[in-house]
Simulated scan of single mutants.
Amino acid sequence: MTLDDLTEDIEETYESLDDLDVDLDEGTRRELTMLLTALDEDDPEDMLEEAVSMLFQSTVESGKLDFHLRSAYDVTYDEYLSGMTYDEMTGGAQFPQAEQKDERRYQF
């Protein structure tokens, strides 16, 4: 295969994206075209699904998802999945500590 073959395949793939149900900006459309052509992928929707999965996974692994969830909702992804907060998991919500200092609680 040659550069001309690649250019032809990219142009064909680019045009085939007109049938896609997703609105893409020009840069994303060109990047998707290159990935589809280079990876010999036929279905752009499968590629988009994979891209979302990869973005989600990297966002979870980097801690960005927890950061944004904690900032906006005061929970983490693990708390969301379990359906309870860490305080609820550890029993901290059942036995809240008094906000005043109670030095006697450590005395025997």
Rank of each mutant, 00 (worst) to 15 (best):
E50H: 14
Y77N: 12
D78A: 15
Y14D: 05
Y106R: 05
Q97P: 00
T7A: 15
L36C: 07
D25K: 13
T33Q: 02
V60C: 05
S58V: 08
H68G: 00
G63M: 05
S82H: 15
D9F: 04
T33H: 11
E11T: 10
D19T: 07
V60W: 02
M84S: 15
V60P: 11
F56I: 10
A51M: 10
L17G: 06
S53F: 13
E12K: 12
D19Y: 08
D102V: 07
E41S: 09
L55Y: 14
A72K: 12
A38L: 06
R104L: 06
R104T: 12
F108P: 08
G63Y: 10
Q107F: 08
L39K: 06
E41A: 13
D46C: 01
S62F: 09
D74A: 13
D40K: 01
L39F: 02
T85E: 10
S53R: 11
T28G: 14
Y106F: 00
L65M: 10
T13V: 06
E26Q: 05
D42G: 08
M34N: 06
L36S: 03
V60G: 07
E103S: 04
M47C: 14
M54D: 11
Q107E: 13
M47S: 09
G83L: 03
T85P: 06
F67P: 00
D42Y: 01
T13C: 06
P44W: 00
A38W: 01
L32M: 02
D46Q: 12
L32Y: 02
S62G: 11
M84P: 00
A72E: 09
Y106M: 04
E61S: 15
T59C: 10
E41D: 03
M84H: 07
D9T: 13
S58R: 08
P44V: 01
A51F: 09
A93R: 04
M84Q: 14
E31N: 11
V52Y: 13
L81Y: 05
T2M: 05
S16H: 04
